[in-house]
Amino acid sequence: MRRNRTTRARWSGATLALGAAAAVVLAPATAGAAPTSAADAQRLVTETAQQLTDLDEQVHQARLLVAEQQQVAAAAAQTAAQAHAAVAQYEPRLRAFAQSGWTSHSQSRVAAFLTSDSAADVVQQMTTLDLIASHTAGLLTEVAAAHSAAEEAQAQADAASAQATAALTELERQQADVQARVDAYEADFERLSAAEQAAVTARLAGPALAAPSTSAVIAAAPSEAVASILQAALAQVGKPYVWGSSGPAGFDCSGLTSFAYQTAGVSLPHSSRAQSRMGQEVPRAQLQPGDIVYFYSPVSHVGIYIGDGKMVHARTFGQPVAVTSVDQRGYAGARRIL
């Protein structure tokens, strides 16, 4: 019974984790009328790009939750296997008792009476038989408890596996949905003039600035680890924005930051919201090169501060990685990871 209680306690937390890791449902795209002017078209494209940024982060969050569910399912399967192995360990002892004729306990008592030379001998033999019966009954109780624990663990494993599979299916559906919206957005963006495209991009993610000298940025880094992060990030300037990608051919915003930090041996989750909760909060006036800067509420965009009021980031859909001012629309805070 103690093993049964332990198993239930162990999996109560796992069940709560599964409940909290329900699949994220993407917010619907805002339906709007067809644009009636160039300015209206520009406004609608800007709004759509912001929606896509939010959806991008929702999918990243869903991906993290699916990974958690898969870990819970794997742990549940391992516990179930251990519980079944515990039951199997009783098999040799059960076979031994079966072969010893314990099932004929009443016949053994008669035989003890008939073959004993004295009353004391009868008592001694029957006491021994009682001890054997008691021990065997205790063994069967243990086996029953172990079997119950194994069944409970297997049920937990099956439920966790089913939920992880369902969440993965939902995530794949969401990714396909967002990709379709991205394709539609890029088609709308291409219909704008070059000046309108530049205005939309600047409004969303700041105007691109000339990238500073990498050697100068590295020289101002507070540590060698930060220097490697800055060098890696600046080396990606000009590469395309690719939704859901962490490189090396293209990046989205949290993909770029996680890629750059990996060069210093630091693993960041591929999620701007998750990154905005790591490390220590840093006031705008105390920013240092290498700090993660994040935008909007809820957080849906990140970049890497490189000093002198500038950051490098994968800006937005259809635009390459670039250096811009850190002081732009939606600035919400910064975190120091190193």
Rank of each mutant, 00 (worst) to 15 (best):
A314E: 04
A205D: 13
W243N: 07
A219P: 00
A233W: 11
Q236A: 09
Q174I: 01
A67G: 15
E170G: 04
A184F: 03
A233P: 12
A221H: 07
G265A: 11
Q99H: 08
A232L: 02
A210R: 15
V282R: 03
R93E: 13
R329Y: 11
G238A: 03
S267E: 13
M1R: 05
T15Y: 03
S276C: 13
S228A: 07
H60Q: 15
V282M: 04
A34H: 15
L171K: 09
A111R: 15
D308Y: 09
E170C: 07
R173A: 14
G303F: 09
S104F: 05
A83E: 05
Q319P: 02
Q124K: 13
M1A: 10
A155C: 04
L131P: 01
T115A: 10
R191S: 10
R2D: 08
P289S: 09
H135V: 04
A227M: 06
E152P: 00
V143W: 08
S116F: 00
S108N: 08
T46A: 14
H270R: 14
D308N: 12
G244V: 13
A75T: 11
Y241M: 06
A83F: 07
R109A: 08
V326F: 13
V182S: 01
H105A: 05
E186M: 15
A41C: 09
A41N: 02
D130C: 04
A194K: 12
I304M: 01
S228N: 09
W11R: 02
A149R: 06
S106D: 12
E47C: 08
Q275T: 06
E224Q: 11
V312M: 00
V123H: 09
S271L: 11
E170K: 14
I132A: 12
Q50T: 13
A85P: 12
D308S: 14
E47Y: 02
R173F: 06
G13R: 13
A96S: 12
L16Q: 06
G309T: 11
V122A: 03
A31E: 02
A29G: 15
E152S: 10
